[in-house]
Simulated assay, not measured.
Amino acid sequence: MIFLHEGLGSVSMWHDFPQLLCTELGYRGLVYSRPGYGQSTPRAHQEQWGMDFMHRQALEVLPALLDALYIDANHQPIWLFGHSDGGSIALLHAACFTEQMAGLIVLAPHIMVETLTIDSIKQAKVAYEQTNLRDKLGRHHNNPDSAFWGWNKRWLHPEFEAWSIEEEIKAIQCPVLAVQGVNDEYGTLEQIRGIARRVPQTQLLELADCRHSPHRDQPAALIQHVKTFTARQSG
């Protein structure tokens, strides 16, 4: 099971959740920080990510990582576990590499841009500039400016409002568990319900008393649901 972090995430920001989940499932897990995040190579100072930055992570970077680590997904199909932007990347990868996928678990993924998302990302920009958010992110990123501004400037670019993967995800063939908190501040439940309409084998999990990070807000419930879901697929 490969873990794909959120738009401001990294290996360390998962804390012990991947270990807890993989121990419960009896799976091997792979956790990595994408370029620009954590201890990975930071984004160059003037580099601006393209509108297709999630596509490139899904279709270029992740396949290259699997090759570098000698992971043959054709021989042993993989599970992807993605959160937020990582969930979108997981969906895109699964839509392209259909024969290599055992299944998907996506938490608070984005399949299109909503006003709520943009408003929250604008608030994050203010917090980064005016509060101690930069110091907090500095605990998890070698270069917090690389991580924050790469993500924030792309999402807030006017052209990004038209971004959508609603049509592309129709190609997904593997089982999907789409999870979202009812109180998610970065997206409405239409994000995962939109997946279910386009990918009929999707199972939805809408968690009460949960915001944008189900693995932090409801870890025990999430692990139990994932365990049941994966067991049903293997069974």
Rank of each mutant, 00 (worst) to 15 (best):
L104E: 10
L62T: 02
Q76S: 15
A124E: 02
A94D: 12
L92N: 04
Q130N: 07
D85A: 14
E129R: 13
N74R: 11
F97T: 01
P63C: 08
T115N: 05
V113T: 15
L66A: 10
E129Q: 14
N142Q: 15
F53M: 13
T98S: 12
A95T: 08
H140E: 05
G82E: 01
D67I: 02
A68N: 07
A68L: 06
E99V: 07
W49V: 05
A90D: 08
Q48E: 09
E114N: 09
L80I: 03
S120V: 08
C96V: 04
I111F: 14
L66S: 03
E60P: 01
F81A: 06
H75C: 08
K125R: 15
S120R: 14
R139G: 02
L59Q: 09
A102E: 11
L133Q: 06
A90F: 13
Y70V: 02
L104P: 01
D72S: 14
L69M: 14
A94W: 14
H93N: 11
E99T: 12
A73G: 09
L91D: 05
A68Y: 06
D119T: 06
A58R: 08
Q123K: 14
A102C: 09
Q57M: 04
D135L: 10
A58G: 03
S88M: 11
W49S: 03
H83T: 02
Q123D: 11
L137Q: 02
Q48A: 10
M112D: 11
C96M: 10
S88D: 05
F53Y: 15
L133H: 02
H93G: 02
T115F: 03
Q57W: 01
L80K: 09
L137S: 02
E129Y: 05
T117H: 06
Y70H: 12
K122L: 12
N132Y: 04
L92W: 08
M51E: 13
E60W: 11
Y70W: 06
Q130Y: 06
W49Q: 07
A58L: 04
S120L: 07
Y128W: 11
K122H: 14
Y70D: 08
H141T: 05
M101E: 07
I78E: 04
Y70M: 06
E129N: 10
R134L: 03
T117P: 00
L66G: 01
M51S: 13
L65K: 04
H93W: 15
I89K: 13
P144V: 14
D52V: 05
I121N: 03
D135Y: 08
H93Y: 15
Y70N: 10
I118N: 03
N132I: 03
M54T: 05
G82P: 00
G86I: 06
L107F: 10
A124N: 06
V126Y: 03
A68Q: 09
I71D: 08
I111H: 12
T98E: 11
Q130I: 01
F97K: 03
A94N: 10
H75P: 00
A102M: 11
Q100S: 12
A68D: 06
L91N: 09
V113W: 10
L107S: 06
I111D: 10
H93Q: 09
G86D: 02
D85W: 11
E60N: 12
A64Y: 00
A124G: 01
